[in-house]
């Protein structure tokens, strides 16, 4: 059988270019992740060597034995068509943001707007990277921004290179999903 295992679901990592989506999936995937990174030719806007233009794919097993498929989206808005393709059928979304970007709060709005219609209500977790660096947007501001639009979502500070931090994001999201599924699909 090649059908998805019982209870297997899909989580999408999204957020702007450079927020750490590819890194986060690579940090926790139990299989060699699929990447679609290419040379970044837009160095004026981003000092990044590579950028994802298709998607990332990885897989992890939750402590209860449930496999989870991890998909990462491209971050640049011109790849928006990929967001809806990848968001289809997702159990939830993890939005990663770089707190040192001056437009981090606008980026939060952009990705919430894009994924809110694609995932079940409340299935959003926000991960804030580089929050301790000078000039970073305060972590509280992200939660306040969500509340202002009537949304409640956990906002965690993370380092996308740290497996422990990324697992915590996934765990937080699966707890939200669990609390919504009465039959206890998750251990």
């Amino acid at each position: 059988m090649t059908a998805p295992e019982e209870g297997e679901f899909k989580i999408v990592f999204t957020g702007p270019m450079g927020a750490g989506k590819t890194t986060a999936i690579a940090a926790i995937s139990e299989v060699e992740p699929v990447r679609t990174e290419v040379d970044n030719s837009d160095r004026e806007n981003h000092e990044k060597e590579y950028t994802t233009v298709g998607f990332d794919f990885g897989r992890i097993t939750l402590p209860g034995g449930h496999p989870v498929r991890l998909y990462g989206t491209p971050g640049q808005a011109r790849f928006r068509f990929m967001w809806s393709i990848l968001g289809r059928g997702a159990a939830g979304v993890i939005i990663l943001l770089d707190a040192t970007r001056a437009d981090a709060l606008e980026q939060l709005d952009l990705f919430v707007d894009a994924f809110l219609p694609l995932v079940p209500p409340g299935a959003i977790v926000v991960g804030i990277g580089r929050n301790a660096e000078p000039g970073a947007v305060a972590t509280d501001a992200f939660a306040t921004r969500m509340e202002a639009r009537g949304l409640v979502a956990p906002v965690l500070t993370i380092d996308a290179r740290e497996p422990r931090d990324v697992r915590l994001l996934v765990h937080t999201l699966t707890c939200i999903l669990e609390s919504r599924v009465p039959a206890g699909a998750c251990a």
Partner: peptide, 27 residues
Amino acid sequence: SADGFELASYAADEAAAARLAAIGSSL
């Protein structure tokens, strides 16, 4: 370009070329 920027086009307006470039680079 590999990261989806249009470099030149034939018979495509700017907006269409930009979309084709982005989707083409994903493919």
